[in-house]
Design a protein around this nucleic acid. Structure first.
Length: 296
DNA sequence: AAGACGAAAGTGGTTGA
DNA sequence: TCAACAACTTTCGTCTT
């Protein structure tokens, strides 16, 4: 099923026989999609893991110097702490500022603080890729002595490339991960688009479907239906001018109801980063134009 | 009581004169 | 620079399950 979905989006995936089983359906065909960095079930489409670590030998090199270093062998540089230098960190040694040991009670407290600090710093694994990439951009820009606006442009280019490659990230996500305001990114985006003549395709709403569906714990058939709905309305000329996330959310909302796995408007709205009102508006349009008879 | 619905007003950004 | 505009949000009262 997801093999189909993956094909729909036109990605190459590799199927691997793994000992692992899908926690959802028990299926044994686990697919590694390196381009998306996702590990998914071949039977039901559940995304088991995102941003999988083993990206093969072709680790990224962002400039000639790095390329040279890495080509000579040795392990690729690992950024165990993507936020290094950007936020306050709590170290792992149970010592106070003078080096004296801390009481066990305090240690337990510190442990909890660390745990939550980590969770708050990087909310989801989805953001991790972004954070790492942007930290790398930041590092390269700093070591080359490049000014802030270059970094902004680079962050922006990263988002544009995500879209060209069919793995869109919202402005919100880029903004959160890079600490740059959406307004700034947007401005740099338009500038680059004109200056570099980069052809950035409009984001197809169906590209958001797997991401949202996974967050909502919806199966592959619901995703397929949602993508079908999107393609239909795409042909009808709806959608144009509409925010892709809202369209994807509405399609999933409808599809979930059709398959008896209904999610509330609020649930869908939350994962898609839009409001319930937007879902309602999109869903009303889809329902009307496609002549759907769904009772919700 | 929660969810769905839709009207009305507000927001931040774009476009075109 | 300003007004018109489109998409989306916020808020809120009402209806439905």
């Amino acid at each position: 099923m997801i093999g189909k979905t993956a094909n729909m989006i036109g990605k190459t995936v590799s199927v691997q026989a793994t000992a692992a089983k899908c926690p959802e359906c028990g299926g044994k065909r686990i697919i590694k999609d390196y381009e998306r960095g996702e590990l998914l079930c071949g039977s039901c489409g559940l995304i088991i893991a995102e941003n999988i670590e083993d990206m093969g030998p072709e680790w990224r090199a962002f400039d000639a110097e790095q390329k040279g270093k890495r080509a000579r062998g040795g392990a690729p540089i690992k950024y165990m702490r993507p936020n290094k230098g950007l936020v306050t960190e709590i170290d792992q040694y149970n010592r106070d500022i003078r080096g004296a040991k801390i009481s066990p009670k305090k240690q337990a407290q510190l442990y909890r603080i660390r745990k939550w600090h980590k969770r708050v710093s990087i909310a989801t694994s989805m953001e991790r890729n972004l954070v790492i990439a942007l930290a790398e951009l930041d590092r390269v820009a700093s070591s080359l002595g490049l000014p802030e606006n270059i970094k902004e442009s680079a962050a922006l280019l990263y988002s544009a490339i995500c879209r060209i490659q069919g793995i869109p990230r919202t402005l919100d996500e880029i903004s959160k991960a890079s600490g740059i305001e959406k307004k700034e990114i947007g401005r740099a985006y338009r500038f680059l688009k004109i200056e570099l003549n980069v052809d950035v395709p409009l984001t197809n709403p169906s590209q958001y479907v797997p991401k949202f569906a996974t967050a909502l714990r919806l199966g592959g058939s619901v995703q397929e239906e949602a993508i079908k709905l999107i393609n239909k309305s795409l042909r009808k000329g709806l959608i144009s001018g509409r925010g892709p996330t809202g369209v994807a959310a509405a399609a999933l909302y409808i599809a979930s109801a059709m398959f008896g796995e209904k999610r509330t408007q609020k649930e869908v709205a939350d994962v898609a980063g839009v409001t319930e009102v937007t879902i309602r508006n999109r869903y009303r349009e889809l329902k009307k134009e496609l002549g759907l008879k769904v009772n919700l």
